[in-house]
Structure formats: structure tokens, C-alpha cells
Design a protein around this nucleic acid. Sequence first.
DNA 1: CAGTGGTCTAGACCACGGA
DNA 2: CCGTGGTCTAGACCACTGG
Lengths: 235, 235
Amino acid sequence: MEKIPLYEQIKEALLGRLASDHWRPGKLLPSEPKLAEEFDVSQGTIRRALDDLVLQGLLVRHQGRGTAVTEHTPFRFFHLFRDDGVRELPQSKTLRISSNQASRTERDSLELASGKQVTRILRVRYLNLEPKIFETICVSSDLFPGLAKMSARDLPNTVYRFYEQEFGVPIVGKRERLRAATATKSEARYLHVEVGTPLLEIECVAYSHRAQPIEWRISRCLTDEHYYCNPPESA
Amino acid sequence: MEKIPLYEQIKEALLGRLASDHWRPGKLLPSEPKLAEEFDVSQGTIRRALDDLVLQGLLVRHQGRGTAVTEHTPFRFFHLFRDDGVRELPQSKTLRISSNQASRTERDSLELASGKQVTRILRVRYLNLEPKIFETICVSSDLFPGLAKMSARDLPNTVYRFYEQEFGVPIVGKRERLRAATATKSEARYLHVEVGTPLLEIECVAYSHRAQPIEWRISRCLTDEHYYCNPPESA
DNA sequence: CAGTGGTCTAGACCACGGA
DNA sequence: CCGTGGTCTAGACCACTGG
């Protein structure tokens, strides 16, 4: 019936260990010969599986050292660049954390059953000390218990690392949809611009292993001094 | 001194043949054993080189048939989707083709020496019969001789295929920068909207083999019924 | 130095496509 | 049916990292 290649099965098995906190980011995996022995396949087959995961960005190889779980750099999923090409680390100020029943759109994006609760985060992000991004984040309350009761003050700048360390939920990919929009009254106030100023709207679903949607986010960005780049530049 | 892997050298050699019109899109390459014999390496090394080129999107494999040069689908580099997720083929109306000395920005984007000539194309693109994109295209006149003297009527809908077939210049990759903007008076007229309507600006450099920049393009898009997607969806 | 991943080989068997 | 690419093996040698 099934003719799934060995290396695919091994990828699945490794994904399982990555999904559970079996291996933490930065940690070295067993060496290729070890894995080959464990799965009872040749080293070449292990390499094929690892190569795929490296390509997906989940693993990093270092000749002479070993293969490690990728550490999240804050830039990994941040696609805004300053006009001169430099990437800046955004500072975030959380405005509000609240919890409520998921809307239709939220349920669709996060693949939730109707009636489920979501936690929403509202925040402003600063680039070079100026407010540039107005952001709404939405996650399933089930996956992030206690998040709704946190103080806005305690939420870190970059939440993906936080998701992983506090809730054991790794973000490994995302899908973004972009549109042009204009600033609402509230956005205009927070971003220090006039109502109607053009904004770049980034609607984004972040995924964990096996394409499970974790976070739905809408970022509305001032692009007077920055641009969104695809694919991300090296610098 | 040199420690370039064999498969990298082979990739280079194959790229050379792809760049010259040695092999045309859709054409089958020699089989792996043939190539292995020709380059005097093992089949595994050939596979490694081909795998890389497939990953770059230059080649396509078909089990039982062979390895072929990728044919350009009009969608390959078109990232706009209708709100319901469907991709439409844009219709284009060319407004003007002209030739002039390259500006500073154009020289930088296309890596041209100062004083070089460029050919500019101005056009409007339609989605579902409605004008949605106002586009400026800029290419080196040296690479596209005679293009400036063409009639706007004779320019096809999708130019990348045209570049390749008429001028032997294949487009294999691009880099896009996105910003939010507002419609100028001229854009407003062509797109049937009011001045100040928000537009998604896509500034894009298209590359040929070995990262040679070929085309610089600015598309200003109405995103009232469409969105830009990264990464591109399957559908 | 021992152990890691990086490259390369020579072979095997299988799944698929076309004549 | 043969030739194609797809998977898998077992082993070689090299380059790099760390102690």
C-alpha cells in the first residue's frame, strides 16, 4: 500500500522529536553514524533526511562540530529593512492583552473549532525609536494558557522565542499576504501620522511543525523609511 | 589553492550551456549516466549538481522521461492573488516604449556603466478586465537591441518569455522590495481611482544566470481585490 | 588527536514513461 | 521492453572542530 521512502519516515521521526522538547534549540543532535545505527539505515539515508530539514531551516550543520537545532534569530522572520539596507531590531510596546471568543476569520486562520477562545495582543513596534508598526497578534488560548493574564509589561520584544521557551511551541515557518492600506484614526495616533497615510499591511500566519497554524498577525507598517524584502537580503 | 567541489564545477558548466542557447526550455538534457561519462565523474556527483539546479528552479525532473530545462509559466514570478486565492493571468496594455540615458538609480539597479542607454516600457495591467497595476519596466538597451523601436502593440502580455525567445535572455530569479504608496494623478487616471488611493509598490530586479541583473521594474498595484503572497501559494 | 560533517565513488534495486 | 530518474547501500578520503 504505502511506499513512503525511508528518508521521509526518518524526517517524520526527527520532526516528532523536534516538536516534543526532546531536543532544544542550539543543542547538538546525535552524529550521522549514530542516527544511522539507531534507525538501521545507511549514513547516506540519514544525510538525505537531515539535508531536507536543513533546507527547511530547522537544523544547522557545522563541519567538525555536529548538527544542531536552529536557534531563532530575531531577524529570521522579520522582513523589513531600512532604506539603506540595514536591518534593525524592533522595540515593542504592548498596549493590551485580552481574551475572547474567536471570530470567523480567526478560526479560519488558526484552524480552530467554533466557540474556541483566542488571546489577542495589541502592540506598537519601534524602529530607530520611531513608531513604525501597529500590530495585532492572535493565538489560541488553549495553546498559550495564562498568556491572557500576563501583564503587558512582561511580554518580551520578540515573541517567537518566548512562545518556544514558555509554551514549548516552536515557530518554523510563515505565510504572509501583503496589501496597501491607509491609517485609521487609532493607528494615526499611535504612529504619529495623519489619518489616511499609506500603510503596508502584512497579514501573516505562523506555523509550527507539520504546518500547524499557531499565530495570526496583522502588522500595519509605515514604509516611509523602510521596505519589505523578498527574498530576505543577506546583510 | 582551489578546493571547489566537483559538483560546483559541473553546475557552472551546465549553467554555461543554459546561458548560451545550447539547451532550450522544455528540451531534455542528456541522461545522468551520459553526463557522468562526459564529465568523468560518478552519477552521484552529477545528481548532486542537477539537484541544486532543480532547487534553483532551472531544471525539472520527470521520472522515466528525463531532466528538462524549466519552461516559464506566466505565474512563476507573479505573486498577486485574488482575495479568494485564485491566480489570474494579467492582461497588459503597453502605453509607451522609449529609450534614454540611464538614471543613477537605473544604473545602480542594473549594474550599468555611466552613460549607458536604457529602454523603458510603460504599461497598465488588467486583472479580471479591470486596470489594477501601473508598471514601469527598464532594461539595458545593449541587451535588447531593437526593443526601443518596437511598436507598443507588438509587445506581448508576459515579457519574460519574450526576453528569452527574442533576445536569448532567460530570467531565472528576482528580488522584490515592497512599500505602501499613494496614486499619483497619472496613476489615478489609468487605474480609475482617486488621487491618493493606497497602492502596493513592488520594486523588482529580475536576474539571469549568475545573478546578472536584467530588468528593473516598478509595479504599483491596487490591492482592493488582490494581495501579494509570500511564499506563493500552491493553487 | 579523535570525531564530526563534506565530498565522491560504484554499485544495487525500484518506479515510471514511452516506443 | 529499455532507458529514465528515485532510493538506498557501503565504503573511501578530506576538511574542519574541539579538546
